[in-house]
Simulated assay, not measured.
Amino acid sequence: MIEIFIINSALIAGAVLIHYEVLFRLTRLIPKLTFLRSRLRILVGVFGALVAHVAEVWLFAFAYYFMLDSGRYGSLEGNFNGTLMDASYFSFTTYTSLGFGDIEPLGDIRFLVGLEALTGLVLITWTASFMFIEMQRFWIIQSDS
């Protein structure tokens, strides 16, 4: 029980740190891109945030892959054959809360699945807030012109 708690905590912390670092660096980078039009700077923010989300999804995908490979944390049943690509598909559907339902977690890994969905919700919301702030800057620049 304590082992799964430590693993899950480390994964959540890793995802949050990745997100924080990417958004922090984008906050510093976007205003410096004066050679780009304001609209293109917003796109840099969007694509940067997407890269952060993909990195976070892959962090969880690798965790699923290695946890399932060990056989100690449960299994994923259904349309899952144990490949890293299947683990990444499951991670994408969990992180985004789509949960197609074609893969079902069994055992202790269910706790991580729930935490990934919650983490994805929080980080996606954080990105939406970040992009809203960046868009406000864009609107302020446009209204000053």
Rank of each mutant, 00 (worst) to 15 (best):
Gly107Gln: 04
Ile42Gly: 02
Leu11Pro: 02
Leu121Phe: 15
Val113Met: 01
Glu3Thr: 11
Gly45Gln: 02
Gly82Asp: 11
Arg72Pro: 00
Ser91Trp: 03
Leu106Ile: 15
Thr94Arg: 00
Gly71Met: 12
Ala55Phe: 08
Tyr89Arg: 15
Gly99Met: 12
Gly114Met: 10
Phe66Cys: 04
Phe100Glu: 07
Lys32Tyr: 02
Leu50Ala: 14
Ile103Glu: 02
Met1Leu: 11
Val51Gly: 09
His19Trp: 05
Leu84Lys: 04
Ser129Lys: 08
Phe47Val: 13
Met135Gly: 02
Thr127His: 00
Phe62Val: 13
Thr96Lys: 01
Phe66Arg: 09
Arg41Thr: 04
Val16Ser: 04
Ser38Gln: 11
Thr127Leu: 02
Ala117Gly: 09
Ser75Ala: 15
Ser9Glu: 07
Thr93Ile: 15
Phe100Gln: 07
Ala52Pro: 02
Asp86Pro: 02
Asp69Tyr: 10
Ile12Gly: 06
Tyr95His: 06
Thr96Met: 04
Ala87Val: 06
Tyr89Leu: 10
Asn8Trp: 03
Ile2Asn: 12
Ser75His: 07
Ile140Thr: 14
His19Lys: 11
Ile12Phe: 12
Gly78Thr: 08
Phe24Asp: 07
Leu123Lys: 03
Ser91Gln: 09
Ile12His: 07
Thr119Glu: 00
Phe35Leu: 10
Phe130Leu: 04
Trp139Lys: 13
Ile109Glu: 00
Met131Tyr: 07
His53Leu: 07
Arg39Ile: 09
Val22Ile: 15
Phe47Glu: 05
Glu56Asn: 14
Asp108Arg: 10
Ile12Glu: 06
Leu36Ala: 06
Val51Glu: 05
Thr93Phe: 06
Asp69Val: 04
Met135Val: 13
His53Val: 02
Arg110Trp: 03
Ser145Val: 06
Gly48Asp: 04
Leu43Ser: 11
Leu121Met: 12
Thr119Gly: 01
Arg37Ser: 14
Gly99Ser: 08
Leu50Arg: 05
Pro105Ala: 14
Glu3Ile: 08
Tyr65Cys: 08
Ile124Lys: 01
Ala87Thr: 12
Val122Met: 14
Arg28Gly: 15
Gly14His: 06
Gly107Phe: 01
Ala117Cys: 06
